[in-house]
Structures are given as C-alpha cells and as structure tokens.
Amino acid sequence: MGDLVDGEFDIIRTPREDEGLEARCALVILIDCSLSMDGEPLAQVNAGLKTLFGELQQDPLAARRCEAAVLSFGQTVETELDFTVVSKLPQAPQLSARGNTPMGEAILSAIDMVQTKKQVYKAEGRSYYRPWIFMLTDGMPTDEHNVPQATRMVHEGERDRKFMFFAVGCMEADMDRLKDIASPSRPPLYLQGSRFAEMFEWLSRSMVTVSSSNPGDQKQLPPVGWGTVSA
C-alpha cells in the first residue's frame, strides 16, 4: 500500500507502461509522386511531412498513439514508410518524383494496409481509433482499371465507418475525378495555392485531436483554412 512521503503519496502500484496497450490511431498518407509533382511541390510536401511528424512527436499522447505510414504513387506504388508509431520515427521519408499516377492501386494498397492493421490491433487486444487515409494528388489516375474498385471500396469504407478517406487535389488536379472517387459524405478538397505547410499542420492538429478523444467525446476537427470543397 502507499505511504506518505514528504507529504505526497507514494502510491500505489500501477501497471508498467509496457503492460498497458496504448490505443492506436492509424494514418496512411498517400502522396502523388508523378513527374508533375517534381520540384517545388514535392519539396514542400517533404517539408510538410517533416513538420507533421515533428509536431506529432511534440504531443506526448499523439506521439504514442499515432501510427503512420506513407505511400508514394508515381509509376509504381511504393511504401516509403511502413506503419510506425510516431514516437519511434527516426525521420520523415524523403519523396522523389517519377512516372505516371497509379492512384487506384495506391488507394487499394492503403485500404488493404488499414484493414490489415485493424486485424493486428484486434489480435493484440488493443483499442484503436477509426483509421485515416489522406491522399494528395495534382493529377488524375492513370491506372483506370483499378479506379472502379478503388472508388467502390472508398465509398463502402466510408459508409461502413471502416476508415476515413480524405482526398486533396492541388495545382492541376482533376477535381471531378476526385469527386467521383471520394465519398459523397467527405468530398475532396482543393489546396489553395501552395499552402502545403498549412495542410500538414492541419493534419497534425487533427491527429492530436483524434488521438486524445475519449468515448462519447467526438471532438470537432480544426477548421480547414487551406482548402476549398470542390463544387
């Protein structure tokens, strides 16, 4: 039992940190790395990823709970960062441009990743938040054969509350195609100008908000000041 030590309770035995299973908030970031993103846009994305992970690491709860992955799609879909708890992330990945825009395959890969991750959480007996998939693109999909399935799975996943899918278009993005792919309940956003930094700061604040929410405590996400909903 606890004793009084210098006026403070030296209580009481609690489970060690590693005995309790921290809740997890899975985040998959999909970045269009086609050649049209080369140069300044990808440089800003790389800086934004660094900011995102840096800010999440500053928040003790979010750092422990947020488990992030980064996929790039440019000619091929590459796992730039497999799921990693943010507190254990050594550095943000550096993305480079290449090829065309296999967006459909990237979306399918991200959905597969979050579904697999949820199974892992369940097997561990770990509680978890609704996963996020966050996609940034400046173009349109070049793998048309994958798009119908990706669209169907995004719509079903949003409808069945399996994950949240955020689509952001920038520069010359085909917002009509994005509107078809994204769920009607969560339409795509168009990034104003070059406000990449603000977008990643919003993502960071959103993850902090979500990862600190308690049952019945559906907190409001921060306002989106960097983007507009496409008409």
Partner: peptide, 11 residues
Amino acid sequence: EHGEYANETRF
C-alpha cells in the same frame, strides 16, 4: 463495452 473504435461506446 467499447465500440469498434476507442472513442465510441453506448449511452
């Protein structure tokens, strides 16, 4: 009793 997600329960 938790819902599927950590910030969900019954009321």
